[in-house]
Amino acid sequence: MKERKLNIDILKCIAIVFVVAVHFFLHTNYYGRSYTFKSIFLSSFIWMIFMTCVPLFIMTTGYLMKDKTYSKSYFIKLLPVIGIYCLAASIYTFFDVRVINLEYFWKLLVNIFSFSHYAWYVNMYIGLYLMIPFLNAGFKSFNNRRSQAIALGVLVLLTVIPATLSLFNNNEQYRIILSHLIPDYWKGLWPITYYLVGAHIASFKKKSSIKEIVLVIIVLDVLSVLGLSVISESSFGIEYGVLPVFLLSSLIFYSVIQLKVVIKNEWLQRVILFISKNTLPIYLLSVIGDLYWYPKMIAKWGDFASILPKFPLIVFFLLCQSLFITYIITGVLKFVKNIIIELKRSN
């Protein structure tokens, strides 16, 4: 394996684990609870790291697709993504209604075109994909790294800083003033910022000390949670575009991308490659386990504080379940594909 590809594969594996972990916080009533609860304050340190999941995926896209241009084949390559999405939607819709009838097909159409469940990411990704060659051409028009860094700085100023300022909620008037201190109309463009950061990091040649980066990540994580507890009375919702998440995501991505990784175990290589190639269905199909198991867990064990000690086992179990469903589906698809190929050969 090429070192670069393996690093990207590992990054995608990390990101999908972080996604499943973030959903634990989503489904166990973590968001919006007061920092006065010890369990909320302490768990926020690991939650902050897991919040880098989506940014890591987008930066990986920027790293891999920084040279893409518009062509017929480029648009065609979007079709498999849409196909995987529709297939995953057909499966989790079945778990919603548990029957195959007119109600199922209507619900399937609603789920697909409303990008329900966890499919907001697909909605975002399709739009980003269509803009990628345009973004690449614009970013490359800055013919030196200094100009590119300035452009990224402007993007951060318009997409990350306003979202960060909106976290101040200890005083409503103070929050209103701060949230509009910088034009906040553009903060929804944070995926573009992450994409271009990934593309920019791809051109880095100078390497930094991994130990130093890890230390910075830990310090930044601690300071971020402490800072949030000061400016906000309660944990905030899912905000991928805020400054702490942006900085942590960039550091984690940069540290993993420059690692010298050698995995000699063939079985482990296969597992990593399988996860890396199937992150989208693993992500989309994880909703099946989440919607089934979390209500039962809450009914049995109670609130977030009671469930938190079981966090590692729950995340591992739900990840394995989604992996298993994805493995079965890919196996069936491969079997059907082989039958079709054999039929064509026989004819």
Rank of each mutant, 00 (worst) to 15 (best):
S286T: 01
K300M: 15
L251N: 06
I150F: 15
I238S: 04
S286C: 07
L251M: 15
D303G: 15
M1T: 06
M65C: 06
K300G: 04
L181P: 12
I282V: 10
E103C: 13
L228G: 12
I328D: 05
L313Q: 15
N136D: 03
N136H: 08
G127I: 07
Y92H: 15
S229M: 09
I58P: 09
D303R: 07
L251E: 05
I10C: 04
H117V: 07
G302C: 13
I213F: 09
L228P: 04
Y31E: 07
P309I: 10
L181H: 02
N347V: 12
L248Y: 06
G237E: 15
M59E: 12
A21V: 14
I84Y: 07
V54M: 15
L268P: 04
V154D: 13
N123G: 14
P55M: 04
T279E: 06
P183A: 03
F317R: 12
L313M: 14
I58Y: 05
L308P: 03
P312K: 04
K5C: 11
N265F: 12
K68T: 00
I263D: 13
F45Y: 08
S44F: 00
L323C: 06
E172H: 10
I176T: 10
L78P: 09
V262W: 14
I340T: 08
Y104K: 13
L87H: 02
G302I: 12
G198M: 06
P281G: 00
W106C: 14
K207N: 09
L259Q: 13
F94A: 01
Y70R: 01
